[in-house]
Design a protein around this nucleic acid. Structure first.
Lengths: 242, 242
DNA sequence: GGTAGCCTGTGGTTGGACCATAAGCACTGG
DNA sequence: CCAGTGCTTATGGTCCAACCACAGGCTACC
């Protein structure tokens, strides 16, 4: 009979255990959007843990967009489970990009696939409001004297709206996060363009063509157009998209 | 001369300012992977802030996989900038799924697109090691007496390896996160399968076919196969993929 | 020369204190 | 009677001081 295999114990930090318990409640569905958590002091007492440890766990969840905290007293005070936060995802991707986890090229490839998915779905039947929004955006982009910042904003909105029209929340959030994460690079790329006016009108024309294909219900054509649109842009702004 | 417009002041929390400063250093490239931060005490003093506030910021960054902390003294002690953490992304997606931000259907659609991208890229030229790994996984899956948990693990590894063969780090991490996020649902789906043995052999056969297409350099065929593979599975386990 | 034990710097944790906020409540003056 | 004003209370936000466990380096002893 041999020595029983010793497993090295890993230190389990208190705030991580708090985090785990809260996360588990969310995963189990015992905590839903809108629910209110006990106060930091109560939670600490209930878990037999200091308020600081509780706070560290709550701050983490807050940074993930899972919780939101309000001071004061009454119904709305305290930590509540909050949904809808693309910001956390964007932030995460942006930081990981800065740490060179992902290359711009990787990101463009993923983006193309997401947009192809989006336009195919959108062409199959998009909401009227979404289409109207897309039309309004193309009109706005056609206005003269567009500066880099403003154009990027409209361009992003167009592509995000395109994804939203596909009725896929995950794809929409990912697209938003991706656009957000590369905002700086995009604007820098705009500056490198020789003839800005021409670029703006070219891109806007392509947007219009994509939109027309979607409205016509031609998903295949829209997918091709959107692919060329994105690839063409990156080819134009830098053969070496560093 | 009218009243100057009053702008409501937003409370700026200390730990958020700490967070912002560190993030900015990362985004500016002033902090890179492997760099070591000042100790919590020093950082607090340098920022004119309590150690608690510093800790809350550091814990948040740690939860995002950006930092890692080691106790003790010497070179390796303290907080260092760490790259490579898919766990944070998975966790974020899983929690948001639990809060019904994303439906399983959305996720499957995104997954299909990512895998199509992956196999096309992989077919165009995959690393020999990646292909060998994929072959090994198909062999492992063909072994008799596969239980749900084990099969899911191998299945996930196969699809992640497929993505890795495409040499797109973002797509790989997203795939890992997506698989991770739906692990529970997947195993539950496996349990619903009437003839498990048949399902295993069917899926494994399909894996082999996909792998063969990739090895043959036929990206288009591989993309079709992988799409059918995924759609087929979800159609089989539940007409209503709740 | 090796090693046991001390020293020091690190994150981990706790408890207590104080602040600003915001909601509810009671009192007060018209 | 009632409007307004302050008090009370519960909350998150912040800070401080202390202690612990850990890990590496150093030193003095054998």
């Amino acid at each position: 009979m041999s020595e029983p295999e010793w497993r090295t114990v890993r230190p389990v930090r208190t705030h991580e255990q708090v985090l785990t318990q809260i996360q588990q409640k969310i995963l189990d569905g015992r905590l839903r959007v809108g629910d209110r958590l006990p106060s930091e002091r109560e939670l600490g007492e209930a878990l037999g843990v200091s308020r600081n440890s509780v706070r560290e766990a709550l701050r983490v969840l807050e940074s993930m967009g899972i919780l939101s905290a309000q001071v004061g007293s009454g119904r709305d005070a305290g930590s509540t489970v909050a949904g809808r936060s693309t910001a956390a995802l964007s932030n995460l991707l942006r930081l990981h990009m800065a740490l060179s986890q992902f290359s711009l090229e990787d990101l463009v490839d993923v983006r193309i696939e997401l947009e192809r998915l989006a336009v195919v779905r959108a062409a199959a039947g998009a909401d009227v409001g979404d289409l109207e929004r897309l039309r309004a955006l193309t009109r706005a982009m056609a206005e003269p004297g567009m500066d880099y910042e403003r154009f990027h904003e409209l361009d992003s909105e167009f592509h995000i709206a395109l994804t939203r029209a596909s009725d896929n929340a995950l794809a929409t959030d990912l697209m938003q996060a991706l656009r957000d994460a590369v905002k700086g690079e995009m604007i820098a790329a705009f500056r490198r363009v020789r003839d800005w006016e021409v670029m703006v009108s070219t891109l806007t024309e392509e947007h219009l063509a994509i939109l027309r294909a979607v409205e016509a219900g031609d998903g295949k054509e829209a997918a091709e157009l959107v692919t060329q649109h994105i690839k063409g842009f990156y080819a134009a702004v830098g053969d070496a998209p560093e």
